[in-house]
Simulated scan of single mutants.
Amino acid sequence: MQPHAPHHQDTEALVAQAVARLRVAGERITPARRDMLTVLAGSPEHLSADEVVSRMTDSRQTGTAHRTTVYRTLERFAAAGIVVHQRLPGGATGYHLRTDSHLHGHCVGCQAVVALPTEVLEEIAPARERMRAASGFEIDLHGSTLLGRCGDCRGR
């Protein structure tokens, strides 16, 4: 998947922030979990669970990261609000550390993923409120992906 700037920050600082949030959530901090956070923090891209397994295995001194454990831990991290589980068009699923609040724009032409500030959708606040009042459903802007075409693809 394509990188975008909000996910590329100081790796150590991102890991420390994620560890602190996990502790607040009452989660254990194991060496494998720290390795997983380091892999996620060190990548500006959204990583699939298989990519996390591969990168952890490449960087670990203790051998192979177990795929089932990685999947299960990524889901726990997502439930705790530590990572964002992003489903993108075409069936791709990616994970990244939750840092700032932003949306994802996915170009259906070239498959690029761009970060969009949530402010671009401030005008939909009244619609979000009506939706919540009518059905109880609330949109998670941080986990939202908007489909469209990037400037290059629109120009073709």
Rank of each mutant, 00 (worst) to 15 (best):
H8N: 12
T99I: 05
V53K: 00
L146Y: 01
V52H: 00
T38N: 04
H7F: 14
H142K: 06
L88R: 15
L14S: 09
T57K: 01
E123V: 09
D10N: 15
H66T: 09
I139C: 01
H102L: 15
H102F: 14
P89L: 03
E119Q: 11
V83G: 03
V83I: 05
A80V: 03
R21H: 11
T69M: 07
Q61C: 12
H85R: 15
T64F: 09
R55Q: 12
G136K: 00
H66F: 14
L74N: 03
V108Q: 12
A134Q: 04
L103T: 00
R130E: 11
H4Y: 15
T68Y: 14
A5P: 10
T145M: 07
C153P: 06
G143R: 08
H4F: 15
F77T: 01
Q17G: 10
R130T: 12
H46L: 13
I82H: 04
E123F: 11
C153S: 04
Q17I: 02
G63T: 03
C150S: 01
R55G: 03
R67W: 11
D152I: 07
H142T: 03
A112V: 11
H85S: 13
Q111L: 04
H104T: 11
E119T: 10
M131H: 10
V39T: 01
T69R: 02
H66P: 07
T73Y: 07
L97E: 01
P3L: 10
S59W: 06
T93F: 08
R33P: 05
A79S: 11
G109Y: 08
A32P: 02
Q111R: 13
M131E: 14
P126C: 02
A79L: 14
V120E: 00
V83R: 05
G148W: 04
E75H: 15
Q2T: 11
